[in-house]
Design a protein around this nucleic acid. Sequence first.
DNA 1: TAAACTGTTTACTGATCGGTACAGTATTTT
DNA 2: AAAATACTGTACCGATCAGTAAACAGTTTA
Lengths: 199, 199
Amino acid sequence: MARMVAERSDAIASLAEVFREHGYEGASLALIGKATGLGKGSLYHFFPNGKEEMVRAVLADIEQWFEDSVYSPLRDGEDADAAIATMLKETTKYFRSGGRVCLVGALAVANTRDLFAQAIRGYFVGWVDALQAALVRQGRDVEQARILSEDAVLAIQGAIVLSRALDDPAVFQRAIDQLHGRLAFDGTALDNSSGKRSF
Amino acid sequence: MARMVAERSDAIASLAEVFREHGYEGASLALIGKATGLGKGSLYHFFPNGKEEMVRAVLADIEQWFEDSVYSPLRDGEDADAAIATMLKETTKYFRSGGRVCLVGALAVANTRDLFAQAIRGYFVGWVDALQAALVRQGRDVEQARILSEDAVLAIQGAIVLSRALDDPAVFQRAIDQLHGRLAFDGTALDNSSGKRSF
DNA sequence: TAAACTGTTTACTGATCGGTACAGTATTTT
DNA sequence: AAAATACTGTACCGATCAGTAAACAGTTTA
């Protein structure tokens, strides 16, 4: 019999995609097997706890990617504005302008939320915290930065939902552009400390 | 045998809840039967096309509720500001401050999107259009009102995702409050026509 | 070379899936 | 009261579900 000498990590990208496309319940072992090219035996060899362990592995992989590509620059980058621009650019690419679902967001809305609550929370807390750090480094008020970063993360999730619902990537792109304007530190950020924004 | 004299419409609220909690694939006929108190025989009597027809009925019901409670006032209400305030209030109540999922949004993100694409699109188009109409009646530019209304609908969907992910209703409430500030016509709305907002 | 380890295939299990068929019971209509 | 209609419970269908078991092959270690 042919030996594929597959590694566990090789399967994770395929797993992520199949869970994104079909959700936790919708992704059957048959679909997973087809997507990864692995039989049940191999799958249970790599992930003895079945689907749940597969999702956990995928979530850890996603978390790591965001940590390296987005959170870390936001927290520690020299130029806060540049880090924010990178975040928006990488995010747009990652979610394919709304054409690709956010697995973490999708899990948060599904009934499987409780099973992965910690990982889901960690993903979003990491994002909001990192963005807040960048905004504070811009010179913004801590409390204001908190609100604004929550607002931004939330907008990205909403943009995915709406752009998919309308089947229009432009909706996603417009939302990202809006965020760019709102998150950029253009010198007026502290002029109006009331928190009330004019349009 | 006991006769329940059930009506089709009686089941729809329970159906909506079970689809919200378990999603389309996750809501098995066993679960649906338990939630509605109806056996398979009754369910297929009322909904000959099975789960798909059940979801369609639920979506139509939701659409109608939003039309009456939210869209119609936004489009035709005398006071645009009041209609917007009503929208935010009713929406908060409806989604239980993020504790309750938006079924339409959840379907939009799931792989079942294509099956219900038209209904999903109708729901969101109706919302954005109605809100845009109210914003225009406030005296805003049509194009600006479009962007702003997309932004608002998207923020509500994102707020549901994030507040569930963080298990914190306050996140939803803060997002609604933010929207209140951004959507209210406070006289400054046209002062800055560049579209760039100060914070 | 022999043993141990790492994958892979295949066949299988019991449970559950969505959906159908139909007899039977209530209600309404005539 | 009789007939038509509306609703319900149950038994059943083939398909698919997640997961297990075990024989077997390729690779690494001793």
